[in-house]
Design a protein around this nucleic acid. Structure first.
Lengths: 136, 136
DNA sequence: ATTCTTCCTTAGAATGATTCTAAACTGTTG
DNA sequence: CAACAGTTTAGAATCATTCTAAGGAAGAAT
C-alpha cells in the first residue's frame, strides 16, 4: 500500500511550507502516531532509524518552521533542551524532574483564575502551567 | 557606616553554607535590594562593578547552592539562559518573549484549580504558571 | 521538458551557556 | 597554629543550538 505522504504534503502546503522530501518525512514521523514530546536529537535518531537521511541542522530548521506555522509547539521546562509538542491544543504539562518525562494535562482539566492585566503595551500570548513532579 | 555583612554571614550559616568572602558578597548583592531576577552572567558583571572578584564558575556554584538551600529559586522560561529569583515566596511570572523581561505575579492573585493526581510514585513539587507576553 | 529563480538542505565551523578538572586557597576545629 | 575538609578558580571541555557558505531541489515560466 502507498505511504500516505499526500496528507502531509497537503498539510505543509496549507501552512505555506514547501513540501520537501525532508519536511514530509519529518511530518510523517511527528504527526503519524498521536501526541508526542520530541527533542531535536530524538527526532534525528528516529529519522535515521527509519531510513530517512536528514541533517541535524534541518531538524532544527524544520521544527522551528513547524512551530512558527502552528503545527508544533515548543515546551520550555528544562533549560538544557527544548521539547517540541505535537499536541497544539489547549493543554498543560506534568514534568518529572527526575527523569525528564513530560506528560500532557488536558486544558479543560485545569483552570487558571486571576491572571493580572499585563503591563500596558503587552498582551497575553499564552499561559503555561507546569506541574513539576518529584519521586515520592 | 559598616556594611551589614553579619546578616548574610548568619543567613549562610543557618543554611549550612560556609560564609566565605565570595558567598557573603554575592548574598549581599542578591538579597540587599529587594526581589530580583538575575542571570549568572548578570550577577558576574554586577560583582565586578562593585569591586568584588568572583569567578564565573563560583557564581554558578553559589547560585546552585543557594537554590538547593532554598535561598534562591530558579526560573525556567527561556531555554537559552537560567534566571534566578530572589523571591522565594509563592508566586508566578509574566515573561515577555520580546525582551526577556521577567515580572513577578503574587501567588495570592492567581488560583490554579483542577491539577490532576500525579502518576503514582510521584508527588507535586511545585506548580509554575508562566504568563507569556507579546508586544501588542 | 528545460531553464530560471528562489527556497532548502547540509557539513562543518562557530557560539554561548554551563559544567568539569585539578590545583591552589581558606574557614574551621582541635 | 596545624591539619583537614570544604571552596575557589582559570581554563579546558561539553552540549545544545545556530550560523555559514555552497550545492541541491521545488515551482513557475518558457
Amino acid at each position: 500500500m502507498a505511504p500516505k505522504t499526500a496528507v502531509y504534503t497537503d498539510r505543509l502546503r496549507k501552512a505555506g511550507l514547501r513540501p520537501t522530501r525532508q519536511r514530509v518525512a519529518l511530518a510523517q514521523l511527528l504527526f503519524g502516531r498521536g501526541d508526542r514530546h520530541v527533542t531535536a536529537e530524538g527526532l534525528h535518531e528516529e529519522a535515521a532509524a527509519s531510513g530517512v537521511t536528514v541533517s541535524l541542522a534541518t531538524i532544527y530548521n524544520t521544527m522551528h518552521q513547524f512551530t512558527r506555522a502552528g503545527l508544533l509547539r515548543d515546551v520550555t521546562v528544562d533549560g538544557a533542551r527544548t521539547y517540541f509538542d505535537t499536541n497544539i491544543g489547549d493543554h498543560h504539562h506534568f514534568y518529572c524532574e527526575d527523569d525528564g518525562t513530560l506528560m500532557d494535562i488536558d486544558g479543560a482539566a485545569i483552570a487558571v483564575a486571576g491572571v493580572p492585566t499585563p503591563p500596558h503595551g503587552a498582551k497575553v500570548d499564552r499561559v503555561d502551567v507546569i506541574v513539576r513532579l518529584k519521586r515520592r
